[in-house]
Nucleic acid binder design. Sequence first.
DNA 1: TTGAAAGCGCTAACAA
DNA 2: TTGTTAGCGCTTTCAA
Lengths: 358, 358
Amino acid sequence: MTGRKRQRVTIADVARLAGVATMTASRALNRPEMVSDELRQRVLQSADELNYIPDRAAGGLASGVGLALPVLVPTLHHSVYVQILEGLQERLPQAGYQLMLGSTEYSREKEETLVEVFMGWRPSAIVLSGIDHSERTVRLLRASGVPVVEIMDLAGDTDTPPPLDLNIGFSHSRVGEAVVRYLAPCGYRNIAYAGTLTTLDPRSVRRIQGFQGALKRLGLPHHLIGRSDLPSSLAVGRDLLSGLLEEFPQTDAVFFANDELAAGALFECQRRGLRVPDDLAIMGFSDEEIASHLYPALTTVRIPRHEIGRLAADLLLARLGGSPNTQPPLKQSPIDVGFEIVQRQTTRAPDQHPQEYT
Amino acid sequence: MTGRKRQRVTIADVARLAGVATMTASRALNRPEMVSDELRQRVLQSADELNYIPDRAAGGLASGVGLALPVLVPTLHHSVYVQILEGLQERLPQAGYQLMLGSTEYSREKEETLVEVFMGWRPSAIVLSGIDHSERTVRLLRASGVPVVEIMDLAGDTDTPPPLDLNIGFSHSRVGEAVVRYLAPCGYRNIAYAGTLTTLDPRSVRRIQGFQGALKRLGLPHHLIGRSDLPSSLAVGRDLLSGLLEEFPQTDAVFFANDELAAGALFECQRRGLRVPDDLAIMGFSDEEIASHLYPALTTVRIPRHEIGRLAADLLLARLGGSPNTQPPLKQSPIDVGFEIVQRQTTRAPDQHPQEYT
DNA sequence: TTGAAAGCGCTAACAA
DNA sequence: TTGTTAGCGCTTTCAA
């Protein structure tokens, strides 16, 4: 009694009940305008009566059209990705696409495995986070001809690989630079970077490179780096701060890889009685909700996550729908959505006003 | 040139290249032990050479076995659900099941729509959050015979509907009660509840009912309820607190619907110079990471989310795998995983020690 | 406008 | 052990 195998209600059942051919039932359901009013009514009613639910897999198989739309994110623990997902959810499902979520945990190997798995679901397109993929991933994707959108990083830039296909994001190296160019005029001289997975995640790497490059150009020390291999959390933020202060006591400002780490560090400063931003400046990355509620409120880098999600959806829809006349004047991909430094209270006010960097 | 329609590599291609029948290729790939070493080698090599990726939809269609496993959560903004998802991800994908995520936004109608959509993907089972569903959802699910796991609430309890099938969670009304039974001995007399979606989400409703019932039994006021219709956030937590203090200035303790709201309220207390827990006690629900890092650290209710995810996966695997001899001594569903009050600094120490409630 | 036949890619069942 | 046939549920194509 492992579940009596319930006979699935098929379109043939619906057709039979309505007294029409299977094909007519199919048309009544999918292209109503091709069927006479009367038959359409009968079919719709039968379908309803039988609780008919069309089998997408069979439909896709027959029509050659895939409706699965895999989205690969590194993690769901950062609200950034949750919000991107929401941006995508806003339009894609109602266009008939089924979002499938995969989490790569910042690993190229996991990404590769997930891409393989998802390719088996006849994806109509695929959304990838980042622009750094394994060779096999690239080969698989190229060979399949499936549209790809890479998000959250900017491909084809001076220091990044070319885009696989569509791309929308911002430059992480420029974020690193911008932070230095923001903090230096505030009078900070020993500016540190602190992050997790700093070797694993190519986006962190580029952020650090931009950061260090800018420091070098200003003649400031660029060796103040705090690293952790643990996934990021408030606790790790505390540890990162402690480690940094121990190793480099001269540190007077820290740029964290995300707001969560920065918040943890801020809590640690409170515990230690360190005054922020007088003794130490703290800067985050992402501008998550907590940033503005912390005390003092966190200076951070805002990235347009929701917009990334929505734009990715638009790009995809335009690419897939291919409605040839509605041809929307789509911006040329890669699209740089830029970022913005949000000045709050964990850094001293700069001499110059904050500006938008793209 | 809307994407040259790349010829998909099928198992027939693989078979042809290997010089075997399609069926042999299929067996070499899926039941290797049924094929001679030599042919298996040839097939595997051909598959690799052609970058063959099996079409799950076609496979499922032919074999009658579905591999999609939809998971419906109310939101991804609470880390609780992210962690449950992780618990599920730990085992299900490697057993070949494809998790499909849907977010209901606490709406029964959205849930119904999602269930309908997902039923079209030949799900092998389906995971639902909560035990309150629309009539049509129940009918659809029942008719399909698909195994269902309801999580995060306890069905078949005195005040809850019977389970659809498998169930694993805890009693929200007992949480409400337990909180009162915890706070009262600490000397609090005007204990308020504050939450969002308090009318929409049946779990909130039951929590409030348990809460009010316990207050009544103790002869304490039970009308101190703060509500908001916005989705929960730190900002709403602040507002909720402000509203409560304005409407019921006598309030001396507040039980929030989640830790995020409680954190927001705590920030608001800081801003107002209110001393916690001396002037006001704050209690959260969920024990998210931030709870222990706040200052003062948040007293809250811990729920075993990761365990819920893992147990749900186990239950499902046992139900689906049906390996008849390995018949694991599965606990009888519904499974009550209980909860636990975590005493920290936002409430005064009670006369009696905290206890586990199930 | 409606219907019949064929087949999408794969595997269960049977035959060799 | 291997191959052949049929068919999963649906839609495309073509004919009526």
